[in-house]
Amino acid sequence: MSAISINKEHLKLILEDAKTSSESIVKETVLAANEDNTHMQMIVEKAAEKTQKSAKSQPSAMQIKITDFFKAVIPPVFGILMFLGIWTLLSHQQPILPGPISTWHSAVELFSHPFHQNSLDDQGIGWNILSSLQRVAFGFGLAALVGIPLGFMIGRYEFMSSMTAPVISILRPVSPLAWLPLGLLVMGAAGPAAIWVIFISSIWPMVINTAVGVSKVPQDYMNVAKVLNLSEWKIITKISFPYVLPYMMTGVRLSIGIAWLVIVAAEMLNGGAGIGFWLWDEYNASNYEHIIIAIFVVGIIGLLLELGLSMLAKRFAYE
C-alpha cells in the first residue's frame, strides 16, 4: 500500500487543513442557516440582475442585450485568464510544477479512456471518482438517516436539547480525520473506517440546522396546532416538517460539502480506490500533471454537488 508511506509531517498538514476548513463550514452552518453564499451563485445572480434591470429600462435595443452579455461574461473570463497567467508564470519559475498546457494535454489523454482497468492500483479516473462518490453517498446517507430525526427531536423537546448539548458541543469541533484511527480500530478495515469518518463529520450540520429550524417554528402555527388539537404526527407532517425543510436542505448541502472535503483527505491516508487515493498515488509515481488534474476534478465535483443541492433546495421551498 503506497499511501501508507506518508510521513508524519504530511499527516499533520492534512489534518490541520481538513480541520480548519470543516470548522469554518460548521460555523457557517449556524450563522448562515438560510443563506446561499456560494460565490458562483452570487456571480450568476448579479449578472442576471443586471440583465433584468437594463432590460426593463431600455427594452428596445438588441445592442444593450449584447453589451450586458459581455458585462456578465467578461469578468469571469478575465479572472480565469489571470489565474492561468499566474499559473504559467509560476510553472516557469519552478519548472517541476506543470504548466496549464502540459496539464491540459495530460487531461485530454487521461479522460480519453476514463474507465480502463488494468489492476486494482491502475484503473481509470472514472472508477476512482465513482468509488469516492459511493463512499460519500454511504456515509452521508447514514448521517442523514440518523441526523435529521435527531435534529427533529432536539428541536422539538427541550429535554432532548439539554441532554444532547454537552456531547454535541464536545464532538462537533473534532477534526474529521481524528476519527479515522478510531474507525480503523473498531471496524478493522479501511473502507468502513472512511465511511465512519464521513458519517461522524457530516452529521452535525444536519442535526443543528434541523434543530434550529424546528425550534423556530412560529408560535402562531403551534397555536393553530393547539387549538385544532392536532396529534403529534400531524404536527410533524403538516407543520414542523414543511417549515423545517428549507433549513434541513441547508444542512444537507453543508453536510455533502464536508463529506466531499473529508473523503479526499481520508482516502489519501487510507488507500484503496478513490480520487484522494489516486491523487496521492500519482504523486508517488511522479505524475505531477495528474495531481493538478485531481485537484480540478475534486473542485468541479464539489461545485456540481453544491449546485445540484441548491437547485433541489429551491424546488422544496414553499414560497
Partner: peptide, 27 residues
C-alpha cells in the same frame, strides 16, 4: 387546554403557507 370546540380566528390569520386554502380548512 385548547380544543376545537373553542375555535380561534387569529389576528394574523395564521394559515399554513405550504397548504392550499382547501387543505388549511380540511386540516
Amino acid at each position: 387546554a385548547p380544543g376545537p370546540e373553542r375555535a380561534v380566528v387569529f389576528q394574523n390569520h395564521s394559515l399554513l403557507p405550504w397548504l392550499s386554502c382547501y387543505e388549511n380548512v380540511y386540516l
